[in-house]
Write a protein that binds this DNA or RNA. Structure first.
Length: 440
DNA sequence: TCTGGGGTCCTAGGACCC
DNA sequence: TCTGGGGTCCTAGGACCC
């Protein structure tokens, strides 16, 4: 008598991991939201003057990422340029994750247009092959979002990601253990997830041009050549051994670890006051973002980037958690003056807030420092409300003012707007703007 | 190709403490 | 007093990613 056998999972997949990658995601979302854009060359990134995402119609006509809009319009006169709408993209992304979760139990939201699913064991559970399950989810995504996906199925994340990229768009590639060697023999080492410019260069100097040549090396070779852990992980993953689990949304920690704001300015400048104003503007931006997320920072770091792409940076511990620009500007300014080298051309500044804690969890210290900061926080809460209502930077601190006023292209942008000023004496005279004084 | 903006993770090395 | 070894924590910086 034959008992109904317990179904066994496919041994070709010790783990079954699927990677879903939206095709030309931003441009595709734009085409879904406005039917008039379908079938037409669409480019997003209008607000920054360079292409961020391109529809396949645009790619077919020689447009590539980062290309300037002026150049694109010249080449493709009927191109449709749209401003990025990250709110819409996020909504599509959330829907994408939800659809995958309807079938898969373990899903990692990797980025706005990609996710991983671990479907190990689901074949036995559903009585379907892994290929059928992955294809089913792909169909669900495509019919309900109206966007095509590149989908890869493999025993590890690194392999699944390589597979989903293969034959894009609207592709499905399955890599059971037995197909791995042939596939990797045709895959360049530099195209592997986690192999960046410098690692690729090193590999090639060592005679490794394909991922196939890489996995043919014995493990001892990696040790002898002193490759770091990430590259050892990749080696395992490429051989079909999963060492990077598909992570359910970072269970332990809630949300983000750090927040940053950086801006490049053109032309580059040697003017200390101007560069400081740029930094101050980034501080305001990063603080606004922190308040939006409801967090405050115990640590802050900033950098100055020179014209030849050298970074100078400082990291500072904050005795009291902060998310208000006036306090942060005061804290950072001595460090800025220490770091700044006269005569050097600077092209960008940036600020990162780290060691973030929930803004509600701030405990006042014995000397009332946190209390004072707290009342200042209320002022910036009001500033945020005004800026939400009347547009970004309607209200800003005096320290960042120069970053607006000194840029010829931006002159006039702030005419007639309210100004919120903190005292930096020389600046007020030089610019002849209304001085409202420090609010607190 | 003269290179935007926002993130994460890993490692080497120093400080400090038995 | 000198020497040695080891552990932990922190920070700066590099490398990568989308």
């Amino acid at each position: 008598m034959v008992r109904s056998a317990v179904r066994i999972s496919d041994p070709e997949y010790p783990r079954a991991i699927v990677h879903f990658d939206g095709d030309a995601f931003f441009a595709s979302v734009e085409q879904m939201m406005d039917w008039r854009l379908r079938g037409r060359p669409v480019v997003t990134g209008g607000e920054r003057g360079a292409a961020t995402s391109l529809s396949y119609e645009a790619k077919a006509r020689g447009v590539h990422r980062g290309m300037l809009m002026s150049e694109i319009r010249r080449r493709v006169p009927d191109v449709v340029v749209v401003r990025s709408d990250y709110t819409a993209y996020s909504i599509f992304a959330k829907r994408m994750y939800a659809i995958v979760r309807e079938t898969a139990h373990v899903v990692e939201e990797y980025s706005i247009d990609e996710c991983f699913a671990d479907i190990t064991g689901l074949d036995a559970e559903l009585g379907k092959s892994y290929e059928e399950i992955a294809l089913y989810i792909k169909e669900q995504l495509q019919t309900s979002l109206g966007i095509t996906f590149g989908v890869g199925l493999a025993p590890s994340k690194v392999l699944a990601k390589a597979a989903s990229k293969y034959n894009k768009p609207d592709s499905f590639t399955a890599l059971p253990l037995s197909r791995i060697p042939d596939f990797l023999a045709q895959t360049s080492i530099g195209s592997i997830w986690g192999m960046g410019g410098s690692a690729t260069l090193r590999m090639m100097k060592l005679g490794v041009d394909t991922a196939g040549q890489f996995i043919d090396k014995p493990y001892g070779w990696l040790v002898d050549e002193k490759f770091a852990k990430p590259y050892k992980d990749i080696w395992h993953e490429l051989r079909g051994v999963s060492v990077r689990p598909v992570g359910e949304e970072s269970v332990g920690r809630s949300g983000i670890g750090s927040i940053m704001r950086t801006r490049t300015f053109t032309p580059p400048s040697t003017d200390r006051s101007y560069v400081f104003a740029q930094l101050a503007q980034n501080i305001e931006g990063v603080c606004a973002k922190a308040r939006r997320h409801g967090v405050t920072a115990r640590g802050v770091s900033f950098f100055l980037k020179t014209q030849d792409f050298q970074y100078q940076s400082r990291s500072i511990d904050l005795p009291v958690a902060l998310n208000t620009p006036s306090d942060l500007i005061r804290t950072l300014s001595p460090h800025f003056y220490e770091l700044f080298i006269p005569g050097i051309q600077y092209r960008a500044t940036g600020v990162t807030l780290h060691t973030l804690i929930s803004a509600a969890a701030v405990t006042p210290d014995l000397f009332g420092e946190s209390v004072r900061v707290g009342s200042r926080a209320k002022v910036f809460g009001a500033v945020d409300a005004i800026n939400r209502r009347y547009g970004r930077n309607t209200l800003h601190t005096g320290a960042s003012l120069l970053s607006y006023a000194a840029t010829p292209a931006r002159r006039g942008l702030h005419e007639g707007r309210l100004r919120f000023l903190l005292p930096i004496e020389q600046r007020q005279k030089a610019l002849n703007v209304p001085y409202l004084g420090e609010v607190l």
